[in-house]
Design a binder for these strands. Structure first.
Lengths: 203, 203
DNA sequence: AAACTATGGTACCGATCAGTAACGTCACCA
DNA sequence: TGGTGACGTTACTGATCGGTACCATAGTTT
């Protein structure tokens, strides 16, 4: 009944989110949940509490908005890595394990729909799409990050192990979209522990 | 210049492909290459050398055509499994290895775009879409098939190993779409061999 | 007060989407 | 020979797509 907009509290200036951020947040939600091609710019603007014109004042095209959305997701991923590093300083193995646990939880979460970047790669095969460079970049950075951690953890063949873990996670995230995720997370941690153990003692 | 349609050869009856098959073949090509949502029914009909009306005489809707396309892909997958069984009769381990080699080759092939079923699951999140039951069914069947082979091969924890291999392959197929496939196939066979070896001697 | 900027609102553009109506044609079969 | 059903062709529907023109308004700056 009473409109919340009637209480600007006079302080002003700080609690109003600029439209660009609202649009990006709405786009993130809708693109991730329903797929990029399934969401029109109109519905994004509406979900952001604005309109198409304002959207196009901040983004050149839908493709550019998609690219920006993926840059945002890549940023979240990077932030997660640094958060892990801060939570387990000087303990690369603990960082790896925490990452794996986080990914397993992600896989088990029914509201999640896998990796936004990987999904976008599936949905946008055109190799000149502005999104593709973002995707490839982020994936490569993650691989280097994980391989670095494996190396610093003293595990043998760190790049090989990083690939094994990444493929396992990526496979689990996409499989959860096809078959559901019942028990997949538990199997996932067992598998990754086995992989880590295999890279521990021997060459 | 000369139209090939002018030589019915009088024998008739055998070399003309009925429109339903042509449509399904064209849909398979276009859906897989460009994505399901990116392809319109008009272009499918055109690629099949027919028109939209004939398409809708054979398929109730685009969604039903998509489901039929995925049934077709699931059938190809099943046929591949039986072919492997015929090529290596009574040798389940050889069947597993041949399957892995085939998947690795698939991953390395730049013209391929991963698993059609998994891609469809990414592209069609609506859980009441007629395609989803096809996808889940096929994935489950494959899992049971591979687990059965692992068991008959005398490998320990056959279901666990089957999951490991499936996740690895699925992850590779989707990663190849994000990062390319350079050297991924070789790493893939090494990893799967290591996994198989780990399930050989001990419990 | 005047001017400028950012935003919102509405209406529109051409193109394409999934799906349908109506008609013509051809082959095959009784 | 006449009929029947599958196929091809054209044109159409209403909806939605990405993207834009135009104008009104609010807030800030000078």
């Amino acid at each position: 009944m009473s409109t919340a907009a009637e209480t600007p509290l006079k302080a002003g200036k700080s609690e109003k989110i600029p439209p660009r951020q609202r649009i990006l947040a709405a786009a993130g939600e809708l693109f991730y949940r329903h797929g990029i091609r399934a969401v029109g710019v109109e519905s994004i603007a509406e979900a952001a509490g604005t309109n198409k014109m304002t959207l196009y004042r901040h983004f050149d095209s839908k493709d550019q908005l998609v690219a920006e959305y993926l840059r945002q997701e890549a940023g979240k991923s990077d932030a997660y890595w640094t958060e892990l590093a801060r939570a387990h300083p000087g303990d690369p193995l603990a960082q790896i394990r925490a990452w794996l646990a986080g990914m397993a939880a992600h896989v088990a979460d029914c509201n999640e729909r896998g990796c936004a970047l990987a999904n976008a790669a599936v949905e946008l095969p055109e190799k000149d799409h502005p999104a593709r460079v973002v995707i490839e970049d982020c994936k490569r950075r993650q691989r280097a990050e994980l391989a670095g951690l494996c190396g610093r953890a003293g595990l043998s063949e760190p790049e090989m192990l990083a690939d094994e873990l990444l493929l396992l996670i990526e496979g689990a995230r996409v499989t959860a979209q096809s078959m559901g995720a019942d028990g997949l997370d538990a199997r996932l941690v067992r598998m990754s522990e086995a992989l880590i153990a295999a890279h521990r003692g021997n060459s």
